[in-house]
Design a protein around this nucleic acid. Structure first.
Lengths: 193, 193
DNA sequence: GTCTATAGCTTGATAGAC
DNA sequence: GTCTATCAAGCTATAGAC
């Protein structure tokens, strides 16, 4: 399977990496400047609103990424259900570097400017929830149960990411990710291409 | 059931509240001063090492709290298994204000000084893991399975807390918390005093 | 569109009176 | 043990050359 190139633009990717590692308040303009290779004035040229604009831009990129790499994938009925699911899971795993990278949504959801980002972050989580609910329903679960299971999947992704970083053991994330199909009651066919 | 008074000392409690809301980098000395009602110089008198000392002190308090309100409770064999579990869960729920408050461990685990706190944070998570593993083993689970289930419990607490805050719906946390006994295979006896 | 230089403010931290 | 006053450093943000 091809490696998922998370963000094609280098600056976008570096901004996401810094915010997801240090959060909004920990990511200073100096750090963001060094990470991107752009001087501070250049960053202000690209993002007139400053740091808030940069973080909002990262969140917008993350939302678009979830739409194309998870939502669209899980809803692509041209492929078998379990294959779609595996693809979406693999994408998520690569976004978080198999447990080595924190989630930008989480890192930007609790900071001195959290009010400014709240709606965007909630929307991204909702996209994920709806995508997993869709595939769970297609697998035969009731609407209510599918929704519950979808939330559990997101909880497990977020929680295992925290524990993986805290315990410095990516295995926690990997195990949690590997259990997602079973959690949704979708069995794995190992012989699929 | 008596309300669990999280931290008896007012200053300790306020410090915990600020760090758990804004994280390390978002919690400025000015904010910490206003929250505690102590001027900055007074805070430095109590915590010569400054902000790092304050955060470390919060983490030490949290660790002690987990030992007394969760670990000791789950291991108290004088009480029936399900009652112990309910008590520990209720304590955790009150620490996080039924889903309204972020976890200090998480908020301090990813910041510009995260290396300074890493061991303490990992230790607190290990205390929780061992406590839940203990009660799961007592319930008849194999050592391996009990450990796996204990990690799942912590993952669910952390993940549901994130989602609750992001979606502004404490029900997500409450549901996840309520499912813990079932997750450990420990049935509930509603008639227990 | 990127840079150097700098303004103006906030930060973490300290000195010293009481 | 708490306070007022203050410092040097780092911060976000801007002006203006190229």
């Amino acid at each position: 399977m091809a490696v998922v190139k998370v963000f094609p633009d280098d600056v976008d990717r570096k901004l996401m990496e810094v915010f997801s590692r240090l959060g909004y308040d920990g990511a200073s303009m100096e750090i963001l400047s060094q990470a991107t290779g752009l001087k501070k004035a250049s960053l202000y040229h690209r993002f007139p609103g400053g740091k808030k604009d940069m973080a909002a831009h990262v969140l917008k990129n993350v939302e678009a990424w979830f739409l194309s790499h998870v939502d669209a994938v899980l809803r692509d009925e041209q492929k078998p259900l379990d294959k779609r699911l595996n693809e979406g899971i693999a994408a998520i795993s690569s976004l978080f570097e198999d447990g080595a990278r924190n989630c930008s949504l989480r890192m930007l959801s609790a900071c001195t400017e959290s009010g400014y980002f709240r709606e965007t972050i909630a929307n991204s989580f909702m996209i994920l929830k709806n995508a997993f609910t869709f595939i769970a329903e297609q697998n035969g679960l009731s609407s209510e149960m599918a929704s519950k299971k979808a939330i559990e999947v997101i909880i497990n992704i977020q929680g295992s990411l925290i524990l993986s970083r805290a315990m410095q053991d990516n295995g926690i994330f990997k195990t949690s990710i590997a259990d997602i199909p079973e959690r949704l009651g979708i069995s794995q066919n190992k012989n699929l291409k």
